[in-house]
Design a binder for these strands. Structure first.
Length: 274
DNA sequence: ATTCTACCCTGCAAGC
DNA sequence: TGCTTGCAGGGTAGAA
């Protein structure tokens, strides 16, 4: 589910409710997530104070201050969401984890498919292998067409899975890869190594544009995504190609096509994207 | 080294 | 109505 805009929307939504709060209770209803919930998570978290939330790629980073400082590394997988629940609000199916805060609010993790996870890190987060070899943030200065061009030379991989490779640039999943390629006018099947520097400049700009717009809209809600305050995202209405195969292109009217690239459905306009 | 496949898990829609 | 099948926002291990 969540790509970068959805994780960022979640971070912004829950931050005002959790930053500076102390964790008074931790309830684990389902420990079998993609990575098992650490056995000592409860004892580490109870009594800790939550610092300023950060995001790296699709990971949410929750710094913990107190006797045993550390960081929660939280990934929402395909179907995860975090929201603020009120004290006494009964958990629903797939509400796997609660962090009860000192003002009675609850940070509640919901994840039907359980592809997400919560892990606890001591020390520097940059030492974690999962974070260490991530590419640049797409909304940072380090990401541009020059990097895409340089990293793609010699590669025969289709440009869409190339763009979704977290070593190239982080946070771009199946929805926004398809949307950015549409905006840039690039055929998602084209070999990454055979795209010009000029076209990569346009692609980098398109990635920034689509992600920034999606964040503004609170992300994309396809089925059940909600931001930290329980609100769905409104970017779905802005999607040009994702999920629209068989429908007319908003730009030229041609019927949008569906292909599979890297085991992921990929919709594009055969007329606008070359 | 790069690229491709299978897999983790549940819910839902489509087809019969 | 009920069954089966396939697909879904991600990421990783292992094989080719």
């Amino acid at each position: 589910m969540p790509e970068l805009p959805e994780v960022e929307t979640t971070r912004r939504g829950i931050a005002p409710h959790v930053e500076g709060r102390e964790i008074t209770e931790v309830i684990v209803r389902q420990a079998r997530l993609r990575v098992p919930v650490p056995a000592d998570l409860v004892e580490r978290l109870v009594g800790a104070r939550i610092g300023d939330l950060a995001r790296r790629a699709k990971y949410l980073l929750v710094p913990l201050e107190g006797e045993a400082p550390g960081t929660l590394l939280w990934h929402l997988g395909m179907s995860g969401s975090l929201r603020i629940a009120r004290l006494g609000e009964l958990p629903k199916k797939h509400d796997h984890l609660d962090l009860v805060l000192d003002d009675g609010a609850i940070l509640r993790y919901h994840d039907p498919r359980r592809f997400g996870f919560v892990d606890w890190l001591a020390g520097s987060t940059e030492q974690d292998a999962r974070l260490a070899r991530l590419g640049p943030e797409p909304l940072s200065e380090a990401f541009d067409g020059e990097r895409l061009f340089a990293r793609s030379r010699g590669r025969r991989l289709a440009v869409k899975p190339f763009l979704m490779d977290n070593a190239v640039v982080v946070g771009v999943g199946n929805i926004y890869a398809a949307e950015a390629l549409f905006l840039a006018g690039i055929d998602p099947r084209r070999a990454a190594g055979r795209i010009s520097r000029e076209r990569y400049d346009r692609l980098a700009a398109a990635v920034r544009e689509v992600l920034a717009a999606a964040i503004t809209q609170g992300g994309t809600t396809l089925r059940d995504f909600v931001g930290g305050t329980g609100e769905p995202g409104y970017f779905k209405q802005r999607l040009n190609v994702y999920g629209r195969d068989g429908q007319p292109c908003r730009r030229c009217g041609a019927e949008l096509r569906l292909v599979t690239l890297g085991q992921r459905a990929s919709v594009f306009c055969g007329h606008c994207q070359t």
